[in-house]
Design a protein around this nucleic acid. Structure first.
Lengths: 195, 195, 195, 195
DNA sequence: TATGAATGAGAATTCATTCAT
DNA sequence: AATGAATGAATTCTCATTCAT
């Protein structure tokens, strides 16, 4: 039986996530990715322009997904800003917890991506940060969030915090149940450290 | 005898920070580092075993410094846990703000380091996280910090948040006055998002 | 698919024999070997692990051949020990005379090989010396060879003598017709062996 | 106490023999030789032009010694040709047995020497082979050696045989008492040479 | 499309040699 | 003479990419 042709592109992408997570982008060999995807080396170039293009596609796919999900939450009129923050944290933690290898690549190769292509970082902020922006701004307007906090700092803060937790979770450095993680983050973000 | 002229060892390390920050570890050429340090290519190998060894030394030096500074704060008996957190944030933001290139390398090449050498990550947690541990634990004991927050999550959270902010600041992506950054973080950490 | 064109593996090996004979192993450049084999530098590494691996393969091939040929003679029941010695000398002189460059490499790089890999020298004695052993022992038993001669000394003696003659012949230092060489050696070896 | 200055030159040469024997000429580092000679790297160049020059001096010294000793034997009018051959073998085996490292260098690096300098090989034959020549010719004239043996083949034969035995003895591959070695060689050479 | 053999540019590293002291 | 820090030329090997089939 011949497998569906349409699978090769996906197989390669999934193999790449594994290999990039394991060895880092620069140490990863195309031949290794091909082997894992059960495809010939040359076939990789049928679906992707070059090695860097594979990385770009990995990020694009993930960003699109996150954008869609976070936007849905941000735009939900039945939720308060606080509930939105809660849900966004939950969604982000879940997404990366389900695909640890993807989250490792996402964290480790962010700068690899940005070094190569600047137009990328623009889309990234556009697609990914905008939803957070809106929730934060809404919270300020509704006077439930502290206006002394700079919005840009908040976004980077929250994103960096999540990133690191997710990453250490994926690398098995941190070993805390997912629910405990979510709750801890939610408390810190919303209420801070203090009782 | 030809005695040591100037301080080549230091010159090379500083040049490496610049080059690594600019191009990333893997794309950086030893020849470029040597050129910037005004030294012959071969001289790099008089002082460092190989390219990776340079990176290791950069991290070691930084970790030692952070360890010393954070420990001093954590051990200061005249301070409350809340004041300690404030000071630690201030110290970290200052340290990296003063050396943006160093902070870029610190964030971007963390995984390059960990891939190559596992014993490294142990020292890293030991030297760097321990101070935060103590302050957090002290806060819980003195009932000023929320015991529903998991300590490990807190450490990764705070570190990741700081890391990302510092990094974006260094990359000029974020453009907020240092004081505003510090204050925003301090509020979020201590009081959370809510008013 | 791009199928194998010609026999690059063999071309590279033959080019290597020429280059090693000319310049010695350590002074030989892979690029030079590739050039002579009409192949790209990188192609050498498709077929051989590294430079040293090429040398190993050269020796392996030769040893296998000598082993086969000498064993055939040693096992021939229609021959007396003296006739066997005669034939072995003839075969060895012929083999190396036909491929002077190979014989130069064989002599000059023996120690290069042994330095790098010890398991090699074992195979070498096993495959190569065993045939001589048997003939010598047979001659002692049949009382046609002098038992005052130590077998190990005899083997090293005969092998070293042949090696040097062959080598100088190949280097054009010695300039004696092949038949004269064979006859001279046969007289020396056999009259010396006789009781 | 300061050691005699005159020793450095000798110390370096002796250290070089050890290092060359251990690692082969090309893999040997000047720094290693200097270290073993308890001398600074730069000092090696006070006494020797370059690495190759050290090797040359090692060979020159040995050749001079062998030349002197073999010539004395060859010119001794109280000895028969057969006795001379006996004594020459004894002298050669003794010389190399006493200094195994020297004999390893002598065998292994012969071609290194010849590749670099052709004038050398001339001196080598002159100084080293001439004595053998005379004894062999004398034996033929006195009708005690077999005139069917080509003189050039005989020299290469004997030299190669000795070389290999000495070498394997030094490398501990061959493990036969020195007296047994001498006697075996003497029997083979002389009985083979007799009419 | 699919293949995998072939390519060759590129970079790290080594180490003999130099030279300022 | 003695030193050892500094040099930089030289070469192996890697691996993304191409291309003939």
């Amino acid at each position: 039986m011949r497998t569906k042709e349409g699978n090769k592109e996906k197989d390669i992408l999934e193999a790449a996530v594994k290999v990039f997570a394991e060895s880092g982008f620069h140490r990863s060999k195309i031949s290794k990715i091909a082997e894992l995807a059960k495809v010939a080396t040359g076939s990789v170039y049928v679906y992707y322009e070059n090695k860097y293009d594979i990385l770009r596609k990995i990020f694009e796919k993930l960003w699109n997904r996150l954008h869609r999900e976070l936007t849905t939450i941000a735009d939900d009129k039945s939720l308060t800003p606080e509930e939105k923050v809660d849900l966004m944290i939950e969604k982000l933690v879940d997404t990366f917890t389900e695909e640890p290898e993807l989250s490792i690549v996402f964290v480790n190769e962010q700068h690899t991506l940005l070094e190569g292509d600047d137009e990328m970082s623009v889309r990234y902020y556009t697609a990914y940060y905008k939803a957070m922006d809106r929730v934060f701004t809404e919270g300020i307007e509704k006077k439930v969030f502290n206006s002394n906090i700079d919005m840009r700092v908040f976004k980077d803060f929250m994103f960096g915090a999540l990133r690191n937790i997710i990453h250490n979770q994926a690398r098995k450095t941190l070993n805390v149940p997912v629910d405990k993680i979510k709750r801890s983050i939610q408390i810190m973000i919303k209420n801070g450290l203090k009782i």
